[in-house]
Amino acid sequence: MAEEILVVASKVKDYISGKGGRTSGELIEALSKKVQKKLDRALERAKENSRQTVMPYDL
């Protein structure tokens, strides 16, 4: 089963094109994987601190 995409592709593409850049076909999936890893680590940190709520500083 494919990983769930966690970013809005059209927003990412709009942002990059607004800065004069272009996106490759693999960018959205790669970015989504990075976001997932970051969120997984933030969740671990919250649990380590006996919280269920992930806070901005967990990032």
Rank of each mutant, 00 (worst) to 15 (best):
residue 1 M to F: 12
residue 1 M to C: 12
residue 2 A to L: 07
residue 2 A to Y: 06
residue 3 E to Q: 14
residue 3 E to H: 06
residue 4 E to I: 04
residue 5 I to W: 06
residue 6 L to P: 06
residue 6 L to H: 07
residue 6 L to C: 07
residue 7 V to Q: 08
residue 7 V to P: 05
residue 7 V to W: 12
residue 7 V to I: 15
residue 8 V to D: 08
residue 8 V to P: 08
residue 9 A to N: 14
residue 9 A to D: 04
residue 9 A to W: 00
residue 9 A to C: 05
residue 10 S to R: 15
residue 11 K to Q: 10
residue 11 K to T: 10
residue 12 V to L: 12
residue 12 V to R: 01
residue 14 D to N: 13
residue 14 D to V: 04
residue 14 D to A: 15
residue 15 Y to N: 11
residue 15 Y to V: 08
residue 15 Y to M: 09
residue 15 Y to P: 07
residue 15 Y to W: 01
residue 15 Y to K: 14
residue 16 I to V: 13
residue 17 S to N: 09
residue 17 S to K: 15
residue 17 S to W: 05
residue 18 G to W: 03
residue 19 K to C: 13
residue 19 K to W: 11
residue 19 K to R: 13
residue 21 G to T: 09
residue 22 R to V: 10
residue 24 S to Q: 08
residue 24 S to Y: 06
residue 25 G to I: 01
residue 25 G to W: 00
residue 25 G to Y: 00
residue 26 E to F: 01
residue 26 E to R: 03
residue 26 E to Y: 00
residue 26 E to C: 00
residue 27 L to Y: 00
residue 28 I to D: 02
residue 28 I to R: 00
residue 28 I to K: 03
residue 29 E to C: 00
residue 30 A to K: 09
residue 30 A to P: 03
residue 30 A to N: 07
residue 30 A to V: 12
residue 30 A to I: 06
residue 31 L to T: 06
residue 31 L to V: 12
residue 32 S to H: 05
residue 32 S to D: 03
residue 33 K to F: 00
residue 33 K to H: 05
residue 34 K to A: 11
residue 34 K to F: 12
residue 34 K to I: 06
residue 35 V to C: 10
residue 35 V to M: 11
residue 35 V to P: 11
residue 35 V to Y: 11
residue 36 Q to F: 11
residue 36 Q to P: 01
residue 37 K to F: 03
residue 38 K to A: 15
residue 38 K to Y: 09
residue 38 K to E: 09
residue 38 K to I: 09
residue 39 L to I: 11
residue 39 L to S: 06
residue 40 D to Y: 02
residue 40 D to K: 09
residue 40 D to V: 04
residue 40 D to R: 07
residue 41 R to Y: 14
residue 41 R to F: 13
residue 41 R to V: 11
residue 41 R to I: 12
residue 43 L to C: 12
residue 43 L to I: 15
residue 43 L to Q: 05
residue 45 R to K: 06
residue 45 R to T: 06
residue 45 R to F: 08
residue 45 R to A: 09
residue 45 R to Y: 03
residue 46 A to P: 11
residue 46 A to H: 08
residue 48 E to I: 05
residue 48 E to H: 14
residue 49 N to D: 14
residue 49 N to A: 13
residue 49 N to E: 11
residue 50 S to K: 13
residue 50 S to C: 06
residue 51 R to F: 02
residue 51 R to Y: 01
residue 52 Q to L: 04
residue 52 Q to P: 00
residue 52 Q to S: 00
residue 52 Q to A: 00
residue 53 T to H: 00
residue 53 T to F: 01
residue 54 V to L: 01
residue 55 M to A: 06
residue 55 M to N: 00
residue 55 M to V: 07
residue 56 P to S: 02
residue 56 P to M: 08
residue 57 Y to A: 04
residue 57 Y to K: 07
residue 58 D to R: 10
residue 58 D to H: 10
residue 58 D to P: 05
residue 59 L to D: 05
residue 59 L to C: 05
residue 59 L to S: 02
residue 59 L to F: 13
